[in-house]
Design a protein around this nucleic acid. Structure first.
Length: 291
DNA sequence: ACCGCACCCTGAGCGC
DNA sequence: TGCGCTCAGGGTGCGG
């Protein structure tokens, strides 16, 4: 599940394969929930365009094009943006994976889940967007147009201060975990890093936001920065689908303390990690360490 | 304004 | 070459 670190890794590593290369052709799959801009329009608009910059806004990527238009991308739950030269079993459908022989040359071939393929004027690799569950999004923005999803985003989770987080908690009675997932409060945190930050800060995820203290908000802001930066350092979390644009797995899953560790011993006190649902999201915490 | 929840999607895993 | 069920969850939108 791509969150801030995975999106930032994607941004950094896809840049060399994307920026400054003239798009000869864009291939797309058929109209679907994924396309906020109709695929035919997208194909026309991107032909002969060149991306100059790639920005991250929370979990969104925004490619600035030479024409002044922009391309908005969201990876959703299972989105993968990568070079066609990347090699990873995570980029293959289950059936393709099953027929792999141990030493087979793994060569990516767009499948039915590969919704975008950017081909370039030079003969180099394509850039592909694959998304099995289609929770991802793609949209073309006209010059000067600001997407409302971007406009609604709160401060980036890497730069939010304790004052701002504390102020946001005052008016809200929802669980602090739900507040951390609210992209209009702070942009970029998702289920994994919210759980991990709450553990590091020793705050129980069920606590009503308006009952979290100023000091705890300071701890939460520090913990968020720590887990997000560390995850970026280790290449993100490759728990199910995430893989870097170069085909490399991330390794933060090896360092996680609570996420998806329900029933296993707490790394700090050895008591079993609890799992429950908060706002339809599975939540993991230590009843002893988090108060 | 705020909050809880259904919904969008598909594959993996599991019980029978 | 089994079938049907449940679960995973980011973001949106709706009803209370």
């Amino acid at each position: 599940m791509p969150e801030l670190p995975e999106v930032e890794i994607t941004r950094r590593r896809i840049q060399p394969a994307l920026l400054g290369r003239r798009i000869r052709r864009l291939k797309t799959t058929a109209e679907s929930y994924f396309f906020l801009t109709a695929p035919a329009l997208l194909r026309r608009a991107l032909k002969d365009q060149t991306a100059l910059e790639l920005e991250r806004h929370g979990k969104y990527l925004l490619a600035r094009l030479e024409s002044g238009s922009s391309l908005l991308l969201h990876l959703g739950m299972t989105g993968q943006l990568f070079s066609s030269a990347a090699v990873s079993p995570r980029l293959l459908s289950a059936s393709a994976r099953a027929t792999l022989t141990p030493n087979a040359q793994i060569c990516f071939k767009p499948d039915k889940h590969t919704h975008l393929v950017f081909e370039f004027d030079d003969a180099g690799p394509s850039v592909c967007f694959r998304d099995v569950r289609k929770f991802g999004k793609v949209r073309l923005l006209e010059p000067g147009e600001v997407d409302p999803r971007i406009a609604r985003l709160g401060t980036d989770a890497l730069s939010i201060g304790a004052d701002e987080l504390f102020a946001a908690t005052r008016r809200r009675s929802i669980p602090i975990k739900s507040l951390l997932l609210d992209q209009s409060v702070l942009a970029g945190a998702g289920n994994i890093y919210a759980d991990e930050a709450l553990f590091l800060a020793k705050v129980r995820p069920t606590r009503p936001a308006n009952n979290v203290t100023r000091k705890e908000c300071e701890g939460l802001v520090r913990a968020l920065r720590r887990v997000l930066l560390r995850s970026i350092e280790t290449g993100g979390s490759s728990i199910s689908d995430f893989v870097g644009p170069d085909g490399k797995d991330g390794h933060y899953q090896d360092e996680r303390k609570v996420y998806a560790r329900g029933g296993q011993p707490c790394k700090r006190c050895k008591k079993p990690i609890q799992r429950l649902l908060i706002g339809q999201r599975s939540t993991h915490f230590c009843r002893h360490c988090q108060r």
